[in-house]
Design a protein around this nucleic acid. Structure first.
Lengths: 117, 117
DNA sequence: CTTGACAATAAGCAGACACTTATATAAGGT
DNA sequence: ACCTTATATAAGTGTCTGCTTATTGTCAAG
């Protein structure tokens, strides 16, 4: 199972700096909600809500230990994203060897407003 | 320069299905706003706004061609994300060879509510 | 130079999101 | 049994998002 992970949720989860910081913390190993709350100027319910988002995104899983629920990283979410991103990477690489991209690069373009012709 | 791409913006940009679809389209090559608008049940201004988000995210760049502004994929955004994600990938791999993760896997846990002990 | 196509911008609005405080639930230690 | 700790859930609120319609700027073609 674990089929079609929801990319909306996964990317949205990573769009928040607090949630990314939580993941960085979890990269060092399991942590409880209280431990995860400590570094932030935020209440415990707020962190619990962020953790829910991360779990729904397939980026984190929880375990039961008495009254605690230690979290650790999950890979489902990352794998789903990586798989999608792979398409972009390929396209990028391919386009980079094509004429239009090269030419465009020359007389461009930095995306900034206010170009003249 | 192109220093510290804003990860908030980049991940947020990808969290929207319309914007991901636009990227898929651009993976096939340059396209104008009108061409990008066509497949959607959405107005041109809406797409222009999505394109702004994608440019701010470093995922797309534009070029000037008369009154048109063809877009194509950019790599800055993807590279920024990939770099950040690399940390998670490493942690995931490393934790997977560690005892606590293995044990946890055994008596867990699928993140679902309603586990008993 | 007027017209029409391409695109960006502004203002407005409904729904989503990130917090908060207050409360509930459950396990542990005493 | 009782209090404490660890966590989740609910309800409320202000801010951000994703659209819309309306309008404006700009090029190219006649």
């Amino acid at each position: 199972m674990a089929m079609t992970m929801n990319l909306d949720m996964t990317f949205a989860a990573l769009a928040d700096p607090t949630r990314r910081a939580i993941l960085v913390r979890l990269a060092k190993g399991e942590a409880t909600v209280m431990e995860l709350t400590a570094p932030f100027k935020m209440t415990q319910p707020a962190i619990s809500q962020h953790l829910k988002a991360l779990e729904d995104a397939g980026l984190v899983v929880s375990r039961v230990d008495g009254t605690r629920r230690p979290r650790r990283l999950a890979k489902v979410g990352i794998e789903a994203m990586d798989q999608w991103l792979e398409m972009l990477r390929k396209a990028l690489e391919k386009n980079y060897n094509r004429l239009d991209a090269v030419l465009a690069d020359m007389e461009t373009t930095t995306t900034k407003r206010g170009e003249r012709r």
